[in-house]
Amino acid sequence: MANLFLISDHHFGHRPIIDFESRPFASAEEMTETMIARWNAAVGKDDHVFHLGDFSFLNKEKTSAIVERLNGRKTLIMGNHDRGRSRSWWLDAGFGEVSEHPIVYGGFFFLSHEPMYINKHMPYVNVHGHIHGQKYEGTQYINVCVEHWDYTPVSFEEIKRMVVPNEEQ
């Protein structure tokens, strides 16, 4: 049975992000190789990954080479740095599905790049990226930026445990 994973904000090829977010890499190349290795250590060939945006700053050829090396079926929810390129550009780069808008998953989880406003009285959870090392309080917002997850996709099972920690899944 395939597993589901979520992650965001790899910023492949973006050297300045190392300094902006105090990432523990000496170069963009080291960052790329480490993040590919960590992705493939967690994600199997038949698993599904929602990437919640800001995937790559590289050209299509280099981006496609990275996508091809990553395990799993990949869906991109476009982030602010992805939107300068068309949906078809990302499909051509190797993503199986690409959405320009947030996706509702399981009728309960809003998957988006930027955090969305969720009324505290509503029973929804926003799984998002965009804010890198920052984090919102409470269980209605789960930041899946690479900085929070040791540069490794997080399983949907782990996300569900964060929302309902004491219930049987």
Score class of each variant (00 low, 15 high):
residue 7 I to G: 05
residue 55 F to I: 02
residue 152 T to G: 02
residue 31 M to W: 01
residue 26 A to L: 10
residue 32 T to A: 07
residue 138 G to E: 09
residue 151 Y to R: 01
residue 43 V to L: 08
residue 60 K to E: 15
residue 68 E to V: 01
residue 138 G to L: 09
residue 134 Q to E: 12
residue 44 G to N: 09
residue 163 V to R: 03
residue 88 S to N: 15
residue 109 F to N: 01
residue 88 S to I: 08
residue 96 G to T: 04
residue 169 Q to S: 13
residue 85 R to F: 08
residue 60 K to T: 01
residue 33 E to M: 14
residue 125 V to D: 08
residue 120 K to S: 13
residue 138 G to T: 04
residue 165 P to E: 09
residue 40 N to D: 09
residue 18 I to Y: 01
residue 15 R to P: 05
residue 77 I to S: 00
residue 29 E to Q: 14
residue 29 E to T: 10
residue 88 S to Q: 15
residue 24 P to H: 06
residue 77 I to A: 04
residue 60 K to V: 11
residue 74 K to I: 02
residue 30 E to T: 10
residue 3 N to D: 13
residue 72 G to Q: 05
residue 45 K to P: 02
residue 35 M to C: 12
residue 135 K to P: 02
residue 11 H to N: 07
residue 148 H to K: 10
residue 21 E to W: 08
residue 150 D to W: 01
residue 7 I to Y: 02
residue 101 H to S: 15
residue 56 S to L: 06
residue 85 R to E: 02
residue 121 H to M: 14
residue 73 R to S: 13
residue 12 F to A: 11
residue 61 E to Y: 07
residue 20 F to L: 05
residue 168 E to S: 13
residue 38 R to C: 12
residue 11 H to W: 07
residue 131 I to F: 01
residue 42 A to L: 02
residue 52 L to Q: 08
residue 169 Q to G: 10
residue 103 I to Q: 08
residue 115 P to Y: 05
residue 141 Y to C: 09
residue 58 L to W: 03
residue 49 V to R: 00
residue 102 P to H: 11
residue 109 F to Q: 00
residue 86 S to G: 04
residue 76 L to A: 08
